[in-house]
Design a protein around this nucleic acid. Structure first.
Lengths: 344, 344
DNA sequence: TTGTAAGCGTTATCAC
DNA sequence: GTGATAACGCTTACAA
């Protein structure tokens, strides 16, 4: 039963609760944070007073005195890509269950912006930080060190072994999907990559494709590689571009699922049968890719698990529990339809 | 040029900067918040000291002393739906440009959780709050009043006129789309609605459809209405369910675009030509709906603009500038292909 | 333009 | 178990 306050009633503070409950502020503070350290009767009186006054703790004061905010920051490239929103969602759920609040910031693939928003989060006093990827502005890691802020890198695996990380191996995934296509008999490849500048994941995927092809002696001509932002229309454009001039590629690998869906849409628009005339593959694999485009072969990345594990990693560290320095999540090659090349 | 700190160097505080710059803490504070109130030479010395020490302000202390956090909270149903992620993204961009940080919380369509996370944000000391929809737990509005926190309701328009809001009229949009279909000649309708419990937007859309049909004397049989969560597979299921038993509906209205895309996928799976055999319409209209499903008729909601305007509204209030109590954003009926009913 | 000093609302360390 | 009280790091009158 909540007691109604008059409109505009001034916000109560700890001392108000203390006065009403006829105890000291210290006791109220204890009752609020470790209820088992006060006598049940006292605790009840305090609870009652809190109710009556509609008391809500002042987070800043609490943070200043306790030197903890129960807040975790996450810096992601963008919320506009469902795949990151997905990770953010999992992060937020896991943290919320543990009584932590998530502070979310995005940088739209700009390293300077990333440094700025990270500093903003540090200023806000986050107890821990989730960073996406392994390459960061030097000032970022320096800040984390200076302020002794626990952090975890996600969506990638740190090769140096110096940073805690939970992620998957984009390059290896690209190698696997490419080998799969080669094994099916494809020889004419094209790639619609994400923009590799400032995006190590996009770069790793492109590199993996290149490497797997080179290992089998297959060339990937420059005009067969285009870099595009992660949008559907860019995927359509990309397909048109890699189709210029014969021979037509039989396998088009896309940097992510959004590009792949766009490419598929363009295939249909141009009258190609997929996967009969041309094979399209992608990464990330949103639910939508699975439902809308049954002809799509993808590497599925467990992006929600990523958020959950990253959160758990930080929570463990904050609780002083042991934690794995490096967690690699498995990725899955999802073949939904035959992607063999058309008979020549 | 940043000076490197030894690893683990203790975080500097304002007084350290003051000492190094040979000024008082007050002057440093001023230099940091209103640089034009200190002599340029002093400011330069202070900047230098800040650089050298890698000083980062302590947000909690600052918030406690200044009684402002430069932080805005937003409570949304979920990040899992791209449409809300979209609004969140716009919010965050606009706020970031103004030097504010966004605190994001979601409640998964549970009113109690909403109350809890809102309180968490109030505890964090948000300077303002963005709330989605007009119906909220009573404790939520009471808290905002008690703490005098500026807020704005979004994604809906407040009928009472008591709350600042920026949104659109879901019911009216539903009426418009339904009338459009009636005018084309449809008489057999079905609706795959979102879950209306705890979701006033879903309820408003269903109500709008019902009302427009009733106004023209068209019945919507109970078995022609199913409520589903906003997922693609639910959309497929929904279509199967409303198809049970003749006569087959010629027009299926979906509560949002995700359901609509799922329904379309199921139409294809069942061999229906869309929009020849059956017409599918939806709301929200993600980019993906436009690219992947050219047969889809939708009402397009400007969800990104919503985030931008909501942020601007709060920023204006915090700056003491005038602001519109109620902002209605226009929605757009997007017809991408004929949706006339099949000849009987 | 700059310095002094009194808070801001908690928590935490002591005694009791 | 509970109560004083000194921090916590910064802002902001007010004074100089």
């Amino acid at each position: 039963m909540s007691t109604h306050q008059g409109p505009g009633a001034k916000a109560a503070k700890l001392s108000d609760v203390a006065r009403l409950a006829r105890v000291s502020t210290a006791t109220v503070s204890r009752a609020l944070t470790c209820p088992d350290k006060v006598k049940p009767a006292t605790a009840a009186r305090i609870r009652q007073a809190v109710q009556t006054l509609g008391y809500v703790a002042h987070g800043a004061a609490r943070a200043l005195a306790s030197r903890r905010t129960r807040t975790i920051g996450a810096v992601i490239p963008t919320l506009d890509n469902a795949i990151f929103a997905n990770t953010a969602h999992a992060l937020q759920k896991t943290l919320d269950d543990a009584g932590y609040t998530l502070l979310l910031a995005s940088h739209e693939f700009d390293a300077d912006v990333e440094a700025r928003v990270t500093q903003a989060l540090v200023e806000r006093g986050v107890d821990g930080l989730v960073l996406l990827g392994t390459t960061h502005h030097p000032s970022v890691l320096r800040m984390l060190d200076t302020h002794q802020i626990p952090y975890v890198l996600t969506w990638a695996l740190d090769a140096s072994g110096r940073h805690p990380c939970v992620g998957f191996d984009s390059r290896d995934a690209a190698v696997r999907i490419t080998r799969h296509l080669i094994d099916l008999g494809h020889r004419e490849f094209a790639m619609i990559s994400g923009v590799t500048a400032g995006n190590e994941r996009a770069a790793a995927r492109l590199e993996g494709v290149r490497q797997a092809l080179a290992a089998r002696g297959i060339a990937l001509a420059p005009e067969r590689v285009v870099e595009k932002p992660y949008t559907l229309t860019a995927g359509r454009e990309g397909l048109r571009e890699v189709l210029r001039g014969p021979p037509r590629p039989t396998a088009v690998i896309c940097g992510n699922d959004v590009l792949a869906i766009g490419a598929l849409a363009e295939c249909h628009a141009q009258g190609f049968a997929v996967p009969l005339d041309i094979s399209v593959t992608g990464f990330d694999d949103l639910e939508i890719a699975a439902v809308v485009t049954p002809a799509l072969t993808t590497v599925h990345f467990p992006t929600a698990d990523l958020g959950t594990y990253a959160a758990q990693h930080l929570l463990a560290r904050l609780a002083g529990k042991p934690f794995a320095m490096r967690t690699e999540l498995p990725v899955e090659l999802v073949v939904r339809a035959s992607t063999a090349p058309p008979a020549a």
